[in-house]
Design a protein around this nucleic acid. Structure first.
Lengths: 106, 106
DNA sequence: CTGCAAGTTCGAACTTCGTCGAACCACGGA
DNA sequence: TCCGTGGTTCGACGAAGTTCGAACTTGCAG
């Protein structure tokens, strides 16, 4: 059973978070988590990209402190670190939530 | 006298803005403009980078719709597109303002 | 045990980014 | 008219990021 590393929120910097959210796919992932407000398995987020790329994007978000991942059997359940994010970067998630945008595949 | 192109705010996307703010130097520039609340010439922002790189960063911020630049004699005065940004991405500038961070040169 | 489904890891190809020096341009002052 | 200052542009470079297929791992169902 795989374990994941999640950085403590105080180590997360603004540029790092911005970097993570600078990709439309990753914004789409965060939005999905925001609007459905539950844990999701990676493959449940609708994206037209390969498994490998998908895994990579979740990696980036995790290292940026934005999501939390946990193995459950053969799946890996992902949730937003919502409370912590709201405390450290107030308003950030709201930006992602309300912004009208499009999800392309790159 | 050089003129600059400034994208209309409705064309600015969240990933693009995030991308622009994903660099510590550029965050530092925006912060400087925020806290001093005036137009500044490029060279007045304290950064340990070359002229060329500085020009590049201002370019990126301008294309991302974050700053406005105007020639004045031999200088170019730069200001934040504060009102527009606050309307399109409420809370964004506040994030930049309040986040404790460090400006390294890369 | 076998097979499948969900994810991860690896390596490769490719693109984009950050940085700089050098050359250049344009304005203003002496 | 010549010079200095403030910025831009160009070309180059290495570092970093994106994407994929293929091979691998792990747990579950039958």
């Amino acid at each position: 059973m795989k374990t994941y590393h999640h950085p403590p929120m105080e180590d997360v910097t603004l540029p790092a978070v911005m970097q993570a959210l600078a990709d439309p796919c990753r914004v789409a992932i965060v939005r999905e988590l925001l609007t459905r407000d539950v844990s999701l398995a990676c493959h449940e987020v609708p994206l037209e990209i390969s498994k490998a790329t998908r895994s990579h994007h979740f990696d980036v978000l995790r290292q940026a402190g934005i999501i939390h991942t946990q193995s459950e059997g053969t799946k890996c359940m992902t949730s937003l670190r919502k409370k912590e994010l709201d405390q450290r970067f107030p308003g950030l998630l709201k930006l992602v939530e309300t912004e009208p945008h499009q999800c392309s595949k790159s």
